[in-house]
Design a protein around this nucleic acid. Structure first.
Lengths: 109, 109
DNA sequence: TACTGGTAGCTAGTAACACTAAGTAGTGAA
DNA sequence: TTCACTACTTAGTGTTACTAGCTACCAGTA
């Protein structure tokens, strides 16, 4: 992946995953393939799993273990109330940054 | 500053500074106050100076030392050709991320 | 003189995060 | 048995913004 993208994903990837989980519980492997489908073709699996561990430890998601038909048991993550609050804050932060950057791009001030 | 913002600035702050420098050479202290004026009220001075050292080492800017009327000499940074290329790539990366996120925000899987 | 405050730049050490690269396990098909 | 796919885990690395200091120059003031 490009170095720029790697750095830019810091702080946003968590929000992206939280957004993917809203009203749509999913497990790690699934999230990885979802991301790939969204165009994030080069996000490493290890990155996703590490992120999931983090948001679980922060208490942003609830976890349930479910057997899989074709492999080891899945850990299904669902956004909880705290996770929704965090996601709201993420969108606020994102909006701020996004607006500044769009202004800059237009050569604004 | 919020932790979210801190993380989100990784990878974008460099682009922001490069954008500020297009057609508008500036020195570190000035850039800091420019950023503050743009709403980035909590960006630490040390952060800006460290970033300037980095982009200079990467060869993205040209540097010129100029005396100041009221203090130590200024180091004036101006974007060079390589810096413009880097900035173009930055905008590409940003556009990609930005589009994905806006789609996610609209609930569009 | 001494002190303060604004201007201007620098640096060592830290925390957070995405990455690489490896591994373990379960299932089914060749 | 070997392979491929599914599914999760972990140790170590590089990059970046941060904190918290520091040096230095100048003007005004107590």
């Amino acid at each position: 992946m490009g170095k720029q993208m790697t750095e830019m994903l810091k702080g946003t990837l968590e929000g992206i995953v939280l957004a993917l989980l809203t009203g749509n519980p999913a497990y790690g492997y699934e999230i990885t393939t979802l991301l790939r489908g969204q165009g994030f073709t080069e996000i490493a699996e290890g990155t996703v799993y590490a992120l999931l561990v983090r948001i679980e430890q922060k208490g942003l998601v609830d976890v349930e273990k479910r057997p899989s038909e074709k492999g080891p048991p899945r850990k299904v993550y669902s956004l909880n109330e705290q996770g929704e609050t965090e996601l709201d804050e993420f969108w606020n932060t994102w909006s701020f940054l996004s607006e500044r950057l769009e202004q800059l791009r237009k050569g604004g001030k």
